[in-house]
Amino acid sequence: MKKEFPRFILGLAAAFIVPLLLLIVVPYLQLSSVESVKYAETDEVDNAWAYPSVWTGANKDGEKIYASLGCAYCHTQMIRPTYAGADMWRKGWGGNEADGLARETQPEDYNNDQHAMLGYMRIGQDLANIGTRHTDRAWYHLKLYNARTQNVDSNMPSYKLLYRKQPLGIKSENALKLEGRFAVEEGYEVIPTEKAEALVDYLLSRKMDAKLPGQEKQEEVAEVSTAK
């Protein structure tokens, strides 16, 4: 064995290093240098010159809050292609079908994120395109404050720590419209904190349905979704 020992070590190292290089390091370097691709004129895309468009770090705070609350343990942000699941066919999941924009998620979609929150389980909805499904900030705030305000059967935790209850002065514009058993006592209102606003900003930015440069029109998907 004394002679075999270097061979043993070499074997262990090779077994580890080969996949490390081929599966992690090389793809990592390749995917890290992905740059925004410009649209050609034939792509017929309005108001955008490249995908993904580069924007500043306004949503980095939102992503941090999303991560620290553990949202990714119940929500995925990943739409599988049709050979791997029916995600794209579910209304709104693949994107804005009305404009023929539904598609599976691509590596470029996450370029503006710190980490892609692909997720662990789908105890709740997929959020890859939540920003196209819901554009009303108040909807998000109600959902985060207590999801039972919208769906009795929802099992999403209520994130009251993101909201502040304060005595009613001049009625705040962004106060939550709480009714029924969720209403607060007379003379008080509930308003979102900065954290809640940052989180909603992040969620509103989840739009992974833009047409990719050079992408053909996705007839099939459009057909299925208009059939609904």
Binding site: Y28, Y110, N111, Q114, H115, A116
Partner: peptide, 10 residues
């Protein structure tokens, strides 16, 4: 600060 999607993959 590299690829966001690879950090999920890793």
């Amino acid at each position: 600060g590299g690829s966001a999607v690879m950090s999920a993959g890793v």
